[in-house]
Write a protein that binds this DNA or RNA. Structure first.
Lengths: 148, 148
DNA sequence: TAAGATTGAATCCTCAATCTTA
DNA sequence: TAAGATTGAGGATTCAATCTTA
């Protein structure tokens, strides 16, 4: 039973991201990770977040984030600023164009997530899923991640 | 509640594969996908599988599989043979060296899966997880995949 | 020296086009 | 013509090394 549970999880873990990614890319041109970066910024009080924290919230490495920020910055969706307080730290700030891009993209993202996940699960299964992921997360992070 | 369930699943879906991948790579030099290819072959009666089916069982595209097979073949872990019956079809056959590689690698793979997933979940959660992934899988496949 | 961030090289994946055989 | 498989180009990610500031 363990085996079939694992095989199922492995299959979902590899196929679901690729399905969501290609649907979002077809609709908006954004990858899942790019969308997550913009969306996380858009949720911050000043649309601003330090890169290290942004990387954590977007489930990516700092290196990957840096490469992606270069692309997003060149499209005018955000800009990077060193913090005056401490010159070692950098924050990303979402621009108005970036905000507009998130607003235009969010429905497509939500639609895919609903169609492939949320609409298929019962309220009970959704509760179970949340409990399961909360159980697994601590073992997957060096720094504890904020799961609301 | 839906939102936090989704955020948790997204985080696990991106972090768990990368953790398993780096642990397996450190211990055996194999990526998760490469291991899966060899392991699936090793489970077949004749250590033989048609490429299209192998791609499906390994949760990858045929193109990706073809590239990976070239690497694995050059290491002597498997070989490709066109089927005599129908020259359009090709099968991959695990070699003795490939078998040995799977046998040596399996404990590391299983150890990671146990440490990061199975040992952390209760039997009830494992049942729930299996039910959830079975609910989601049909919407993620063109061809229905065999989840035992 | 250490933390945060960036860079470039090597690797891997995706996508579209192509090839082969039936 | 269609199915299965391969190929190569382009893009993205990883890894290790580097840079900057405290």
């Amino acid at each position: 039973m363990e085996r079939s549970a694992w095989i199922g999880l492995a299959a979902v873990m590899t196929r679901l991201p690729s399905v969501l990614d290609s649907e979002l890319k077809a609709a908006t041109g954004l990858s899942q990770f790019e969308y997550l970066v913009l969306a996380r910024l858009s949720e911050m009080p000043d649309r601003t977040l330090q890169l290290k924290n942004l990387a954590m919230l977007a489930n990516g490495s700092l290196s990957r984030l840096s490469h992606v920020l270069s692309r997003l910055e060149s499209r005018g969706w955000l800009r990077r600023c060193p913090l005056p307080d401490d010159g070692r730290l950098t924050v990303a700030v979402l621009t108005d164009d970036g905000w507009a891009k998130v607003v235009a993209s969010a429905p497509h993202h939500l639609g895919s997530v609903r169609a492939h996940v949320m609409d298929l699960l019962s309220p009970t299964q959704i509760r179970q899923l949340r409990s399961i992921t909360r159980t697994l997360m601590p073992g997957l992070c060096d720094t504890a991640p904020p799961v609301p």
